[in-house]
Design a protein around this nucleic acid. Structure first.
Lengths: 165, 165
DNA sequence: TAACGATAGTCGTTATAACGAATATTTCGG
DNA sequence: CCGAAATATTCGTTATAACGACTATCGTTA
C-alpha cells in the first residue's frame, strides 16, 4: 500500500533544533486535527443516535453487548472495552435496563459477577440505527480514495498503539 | 406493549453490494479507529491538564484567549472557535473567572458584548502546561515517520471537511 | 423620538458523564 | 479457616451538553 504524502520543501536545510521544532509542530497539528475530526464525527454520531434518544456511550454499550451475543458480558468487562470507569457503567446500564434494552442477572458460577445481555428490543433499536451510522462512515470516507481510507485506518492504529502505553 | 419491527432487508444487487460492502467496512473501521485514537488522546491531554485541575475544554478556551492577545474576544466568538456551542461557554468562563484565569468586561463600543481576556495567572498556568501538551504530541508522533505524520494531518483535514458539511 | 426586530449574553432545568470514597458480596490463596 | 483480592454497587461531587426563556443592547425605521 502506498501512503499519500504531502510534499513539503524546506528552503533552508536547518539545524537539528529547527528540524525538531518542525516535527513538533506537525505533532501539534496532528493533535488538533485528530481532536477536531473526532469531535465532528462524534457530533454526527450523536445526531444519529439522538434520534433514538440514546447517548453515544449507551450506543457503544449496546454494540458491545450485541457483539458478545448470547454469552453476555460481566459489567466491568463492558467497562474495559469502553475505556470508561466502573461506577459510571453501572448507572449507564441502569438507564438501559430501565428502558428494557439490556437485561442483567447474577452469574451462577461466580456470584460476584452480574452478566449483561442485550434484549430483543435492544437489538431492534440497533438495527434501526445501523443505517444512520453507516451513513456517517460513508460521509467520512466520501472525501478519500479507497487507498487513502485504508492508509488513514493504518495510521490511526499506529497512533492508538503509541498513545495506549 | 411490544412493537415488533421487521429487520431491514438489503435489496441491492449482489454484484454492486460486495464492493460497496468492502468500502463501507473501511468506513466503519475509520470511524472506530478515529474515535479510539481521539479517546486515547483526550485521556492523555486530560491527564496533563488535570495536573492543573482544569478540563480540556477549559484549556482550550485559555489557548484561544492567549492567541487573541490584548484585544480579547467576545464570549460567543470563543464558542465559535471551539467546536462547542454557545450557552455552555458562559458557565465555563464563570469557572475560569472564579479562579482568576480569565477576566471579563463589557465592551464599551457595543455594550451587548462581553470581552474576555486571559489574565497573567492564566498565561502562567498555560506556560506550565505547554511542555506536557507538547509531550503528548511527541508521543502521538513517535510511531510515525515525518512523512506519515504529515499524511495523517492531511487526511484528517479532508475527513473534517467532509464531516463539517 | 419611539417602536421594532436582531444580536449578545445570562440563567434556568434536565440528563449525562467522570471521578473518588466507601461498602457488601464472593472467590481464592496460604 | 482467615485474610487478600476481585466484582459490583451506592453515594456524593463536579463538569459537560442541550434546550428554552429571559434581559439588555444595538441598529434601523417609521
Amino acid at each position: 500500500m502506498h501512503i499519500v504524502v504531502m510534499t513539503i520543501r524546506d528552503n533552508r536545510p536547518a539545524a537539528a533544533t529547527r528540524k525538531d521544532e518542525s516535527l513538533r509542530a506537525t505533532g501539534r497539528e496532528a493533535v488538533i486535527g485528530l481532536l477536531r475530526a473526532a469531535d465532528l464525527l462524534g457530533r454526527r454520531l450523536g445526531g444519529a443516535t439522538g434520534c433514538e434518544a440514546i447517548s453515544p456511550p449507551q450506543y457503544n454499550v449496546l454494540r458491545i453487548l450485541r457483539g458478545a451475543g448470547d454469552a453476555g458480558l460481566p459489567t466491568l468487562e463492558i467497562g474495559n472495552r469502553m475505556i470508561e470507569q466502573a461506577p459510571g457503567i453501572t448507572r449507564l446500564l441502569d438507564r438501559l435496563e430501565a428502558r428494557s434494552l439490556v437485561r442483567r442477572e447474577r452469574c451462577l458460577r461466580d456470584r460476584r459477577q452480574v452478566l449483561c445481555y442485550i434484549t430483543p428490543q435492544g437489538l431492534e433499536l440497533l438495527s434501526r440505527l445501523d443505517p444512520s451510522i453507516d451513513a456517517v462512515g460513508d460521509d467520512l470516507r466520501s472525501s478519500l480514495t479507497g487507498d487513502e481510507a485504508r492508509a488513514l485506518v493504518l495510521l490511526l492504529g499506529r497512533v492508538s498503539s503509541a498513545l495506549a502505553t
